[in-house]
């Protein structure tokens, strides 16, 4: 896999680049801001761009940068990293199309398997949402708790779905057959009163919105 890195702090960028190389991932470009990145990848687009959501002392320029990358290079995946696990950022990112985008908390660089999994999904045109955000939304107290109606296994399926996994991905992650997963998902949508979404990518946004209440 070929990856370009954008982060305004060189220290973190270099560390991440070393880690990725160690994992056998080729780092094609490193940039400090959106302009540098867009110039760098213009002629040689990578599979995925990993980018800090915050590219200066203030603001979430990464969200804007993600849009321009997706517009110019629709086949390049964008994985945003953030120091904060903000639901609002994740939702904003997904609203412009969930295919091939991801949002992870920076700490995940300490969990190589999570990072690799997210990169692979984003490169495949799927979605990757940080487990912490999904977990927090699932634990969120609410007046009515339709979530209580779900069985333990259904809750796990819902969590994986909200993180952006396809039916296939959920099946792999939970060591279940795809048929079983489909059955669970049907039951979950029914219990939560959610409309069945054909496309996996749109399903993520719908589930997250539902969880947020």
């Amino acid at each position: 896999m070929r990856v370009a890195l954008t982060d305004d702090t060189v220290l973190f960028r270099e560390g991440l680049a070393a880690l990725l190389r160690e994992l056998g991932i080729e780092v094609t470009h490193q940039a400090g801001n959106e302009r540098e990145l867009l110039e760098g990848i213009a002629d040689d687009p990578p599979d995925v761009v990993i980018m800090d959501i915050r590219l200066s002392a203030h603001g979430a320029e990464g969200l804007h940068a993600a849009e321009s990358i997706r517009r110019r290079h629709p086949r390049v995946g964008v994985l945003l990293l953030s120091a904060y696990a903000e639901t609002a950022y994740a939702l904003r990112l997904l609203e412009n199309g969930a295919a091939g985008v991801g949002y992870l908390v920076k700490d995940r660089v300490g969990r190589v398997e999570v990072l690799e999994d997210a990169l692979r999904r984003v490169a495949d045109g799927q979605t990757a949402i940080d487990p912490e955000i999904v977990q927090r939304l699932m634990d969120r107290p609410s007046r009515q708790r339709p979530l209580d109606l779900l069985s333990g296994q259904e809750r796990n399926v819902l969590q994986h779905m909200a993180e952006g996994r396809s039916n296939n991905g959920v099946a792999e992650a939970m060591f279940l057959s795809q048929k079983t997963v489909e059955k669970h998902i049907l039951s979950i949508f029914k219990k939560l009163g959610l409309e069945q979404q054909g496309q996996d990518n749109r399903r993520v946004l719908a589930v997250l919105h539902w969880l947020q209440g």
């Binding site: 915050r54 979430a60 903000e86 609002a88």
Partner: peptide, 10 residues
């Protein structure tokens, strides 16, 4: 950070 960027609601 989200306050300055996206406002009170988020």
């Amino acid at each position: 950070a989200v306050l300055g960027e996206m406002g009170l609601q988020p």
